[in-house]
Design a protein around this nucleic acid. Structure first.
Lengths: 166, 166
DNA sequence: GAAGGTGTACTCGGATAGGGCCTGTCCGAGTTATTCGGG
DNA sequence: CCCGAATAACTCGGACAGGCCCTATCCGAGTACACCTTC
């Protein structure tokens, strides 16, 4: 069991978006260039973030993606939920009601939920809770100095090339 | 991302093992019969538990599986680790050192670990910690009355069929 | 009656196919900036 | 010099193959019990 690679990409891109966005959208190709990622595949994940309301996409020549709300209100839990679907990582198939116990399934269900499933879901909640405690703002502050400097230089170069809109 | 179905099977089987075992091993076919599972596929998971030291397997006509240590010392974390391999759910590919940042990768690495990966691993630790707090003994106590009664009757019937060794 | 050897039935254990999701890629619909021509 | 339409290039968006892991199954190696033969 492993988280899709897209989660890592999306999280990093949201951080960069927070740094690069200033009332104008950032193109998928730009984000891909920053991290040396496959543009087409990255696009797939950014679309997922858009579908789940984390990003706003703008078509057209000067289009791109923008954060849909302040970075402080976007957490890693949102990112995981957007790319993972938010479904439980442990799925209970209720085998406690199969086999020997089949004839008494209604009684068993009435006695409460499966203890194993309950424990799994509690642990899962701890995980999601920990993820929800980390916002994009927190991650931006965690970016090291040299990376931040590189990003600034990149923006300036883009500035020269693209024009005064940046 | 979803946990393999084997985790659920293994957890339930450990609970039944704790109930059924009395100094004699319980066969894979018996466990499969209790829950109406595929014997061959269940065997695969029990082998994994054996490889990781949770179970002891005994070959031969009256062979089977036994808990390798007291049920109070086996936790859900152990089960997940045995069937999942214990590797991190989130794998950091260090894309913060790719693309623009490639020339300064050594500097960036020296500045500390990736903030995103750190947050992910913290959350993962919370998950594992929660799982480690639940032992098989806890789960046995959570079994409802009617299921417990069914198991007892099953053991008695087996008793008649199999002989005095049970 | 007891002991030893043999046969059988049961067990675990690893090696072998199939399906679903993540990975990776491509091309099309739509929109904006640009450019060229006319007034 | 200003305005407007056509062009072109860039954007997002969804549809299309490949690979790996979980799912599911089978058959073989090994062991303990039971029985039979022999002493």
């Amino acid at each position: 069991m492993q988280l899709p690679k897209g989660v890592e990409w999306a999280a990093h891109c949201l951080v960069v978006l927070e740094r690069l966005t200033e009332d104008h959208p950032v193109a998928n190709s730009t984000l891909a260039e920053v991290y040396g990622l496959s543009p087409t595949y990255l696009n797939k994940h950014l679309q997922a973030l858009t579908r789940h309301g984390l990003l706003i996409s703008m078509p057209g020549s000067a289009g791109g993606f923008t954060l849909s709300r302040p970075a402080s209100e976007i957490t890693l839990a949102d990112v995981v939920e957007a790319l993972e679907g938010g479904g439980p990582i442990f799925r209970c198939t209720e085998i406690r009601c199969d086999g020997l116990f089949q004839p008494h399934s209604t009684e068993i269900r009435a006695s409460g939920s499966c203890a194993i499933a309950a424990a799994m879901w509690t642990a899962e909640q701890a995980w999601r809770h920990s993820l929800a405690a980390v916002s994009i703002t927190d991650l931006v502050q965690g970016v090291d100095a040299v990376s931040s400097k590189n990003l600034n230089e990149f923006v300036e170069n883009k500035n020269v090339k693209v024009g005064p809109i940046l």
